[in-house]
Amino acid sequence: MRPLTDEETKTVFEKLSKYIGENIKLLVDRPDGTYCFRLHNDRLYYMSEKILKLATNISRDKLVSVGTCFGKFTKTKKFRLHITALDFLAPYAKFKVWVKPGAEQSFLYGNHVLKSGLGRITENTMQYQGVVVYSMADVPLGFGVAAKSTQECRRVDPMSIVVFHQADVGEFIRNEDTLT
């Protein structure tokens, strides 16, 4: 477990800012204590300093996970967000997409969101903007990238994709082994 290098920090924060914008500073400066990012087994973990200190008791090979896993660095040093980060993305998300109850299931199986399943979308969403996907009951289901801007969404035909799927909570079951 080690702190991030500058380069890694940059990659991570760039990625995060796609979803939560400037709210990113709320993640780092929290009123309830110091929180920090740590890298362990190529995974990025987000935890409070208190837990971090306790975790140092545990040897590296025996440590499985600390705090919340945000994602992992790929072999090419890109950063990929995991669904486990949803708990911290959803409250701060700038752009949101709500899917209709009928399309929930499809999204949770790893499919893109089609226009027909689109319930609501935040105004002024740009194309390729990172969005958090909610059910109509405001339960966060995952996140993705807007395939079309809000304006375009109004016009396209029902079967066209409006949000590209990146991660959904169904992965908790589907990819349990690779979550961390």
Binding site: I51, I58, L63, S65, D87, V169, E176, L179, T180
Partner: peptide, 29 residues
């Protein structure tokens, strides 16, 4: 792995997950 999955799914953030033999635990912490 299921512990990791469930903890993240349920939004628990205060957990350290480790893989020791329980009998050695007093040595760890």
């Amino acid at each position: 792995k299921s512990v990791v999955g469930n903890i993240h799914r349920l939004g628990v953030t205060n957990t350290i997950i480790c893989n020791y033999d329980g009998r050695q635990f007093p040595k760890v912490m």
